[in-house]
């Protein structure tokens, strides 16, 4: 009885949260259309969220390409299909693994970062201080961060994909003696627009989700240091979940529009 009640109240909370996040998103779209615009802060956030994530995304992407190729090699060799390596690796990385892994990494780095930063700003009344200083904190903090994440993530994903393919090419070069030129020729032979474009569109949504949830959790952080930790933690959890939901929808939509 108690557990079922608990379950019901949890479900209600869950839907309330979804409603809240939706309202937050609507508020974002309203705010982004109305002046004043915080361009300077937007650039600063692009630098922090985008540029500062390059190393992380690059290293993960490189290892991803490396490991993926190393792991697939024996299987493909068994079938005598090593020549399919570039096409297989490139399609999986560009379509799915690259965007999702990069987005998850960024959810961990950017999402939790935003959650913690805004959370602590809320707790230490910095957001109130901004409001009193005549600056709309939603515009200054939230709009800039969500926008920056939305703009930066596709770039990070492209960057990560490229590094991952480079890692894969490196393995093929060292182990299979395949030249980089041949490898990338094969890659571009295998890829089509319907691989790259949906993945790129998808990555904008990934970025938006990371920024949105991080900001939401941080902006409405509960009082106290525990609240900050929870905000940053929940930002990652919710974002990761949301990323997979978006990915699922994206694959669904891609299927409808790109497979004639």
């Amino acid at each position: 009885m108690a557990t079922s009640l608990n379950l019901i109240s949890r479900t209600i909370t869950f839907f309330e949260e979804i409603g809240d996040i939706t309202l937050f998103a609507i508020r974002y779209f309203r705010a982004i259309l109305m002046p004043p615009f915080e361009f300077k802060e937007l650039l600063r956030q692009c630098y922090i969220l985008g540029y500062r994530s390059i190393l992380l995304v690059g290293v993960t992407g490189f290892i991803l390409g490396l490991v993926f190729t190393l792991q697939s090699r024996p299987t493909l060799m068994e079938f005598g299909a090593e020549s399919w390596m570039p096409s297989m690796v490139s399609i999986s990385i560009v379509r799915e693994i690259g965007p999702v892994i990069t987005a998850l990494i960024c959810a961990g780095k950017i999402g939790s970062g935003i959650g913690a930063e805004l959370g602590s700003m809320r707790v230490t009344e910095q957001i109130d201080a901004m409001e009193v200083s005549g600056t709309n904190p939603f515009k200054y903090l939230v709009v800039t961060r969500i926008t920056a994440a939305t703009l930066m993530l596709p770039l990070l994903i492209v960057f990560g994909d490229a590094i991952a393919l480079f890692g894969s090419a490196l393995v093929e070069n060292l182990k299979g003696g395949v030249s980089f030129t041949l490898y990338f020729n094969k890659v571009f032979e295998a890829l089509s627009f319907s691989d790259v474009i949906p993945a790129t569109i998808k990555s904008f949504f990934f970025g938006f989700a990371i920024g949105l949830v991080g900001c939401y959790k941080g902006y409405y952080c509960k009082k106290g240091t525990a609240g900050v930790g929870e905000a940053s933690n929940m930002a990652v959890v919710y974002t990761s979940m949301l990323l997979f939901v978006i990915d699922f929808i994206a694959v669904f939509v891609t299927d409808i529009f790109f497979e004639v």
Partner: peptide
């Protein structure tokens, strides 16, 4: 701030270039 802008600019240009050239090569194929 100027330094940040420069780095960001390089990153944005590089990634966009990667994307555009990928699209070009695919189209070429």
């Amino acid at each position: 701030a100027a330094n940040q802008k420069l780095k960001l600019g390089i990153f944005v240009m590089l990634s966009t270039l990667l994307l555009v050239s990928a699209l070009y090569f695919i189209g070429n194929r």
